[in-house]
Design a protein around this nucleic acid. Structure first.
Lengths: 67, 67
DNA sequence: TAACAGAGTCAAGCTTGCTTTACTTTTTAT
DNA sequence: ATAAAAAGTAAAGCAAGCTTGACTCTGTTA
């Protein structure tokens, strides 16, 4: 699962900590997701997409057979 | 989190077991998700949307402050 | 009414998502 | 070059997603 978090964040000049606050998760969680260490839960994916004003499909790109 | 699984399944006249097979999860998992017992992982949500030829947002409706 | 298919549910166990705490490395600005 | 901010990383622990196995409760439909 790839994602555009780093780009979306950069476009708004937000830090991982700032993003974490607005998503109500820890900074480490944002970092781990951004680095592709693991996938967010579906509810968190919704909150991320909503915060960036876009869709889950726009933020995350699923590729068959990786997880 | 609400979902349209039962409807999408009915439109295609698929059983929970049939759906489970094509998603590569157990029948109990399909049942639990359909009944809203818990949310699917993000990868599984992608596979569900893809199988039904639609988007995650079309299958699942997130509502603030439930999970 | 008996039998079968589909749906619902429960328990135990493993894996993954997320937390806190704490530390190291990289980037930015002075 | 130094200091501060941001990013990266790791370990331990709890919560959520998913599994298998087994059992119940619905409809059908023969």
């Amino acid at each position: 699962m790839k994602n555009r978090l780093k780009i979306l964040r950069a476009e708004r000049d937000w830090t991982q900590a700032h993003l974490a606050q607005h998503l109500d998760v820890s900074r480490q969680t944002v970092n781990a997701i951004e680095k592709g260490k693991y996938d967010p839960s579906l509810p968190l994916a919704f909150r991320i997409a909503r915060l960036f004003g876009t869709t889950i499909e726009d933020v995350f790109q699923y590729e068959e057979g990786q997880t």
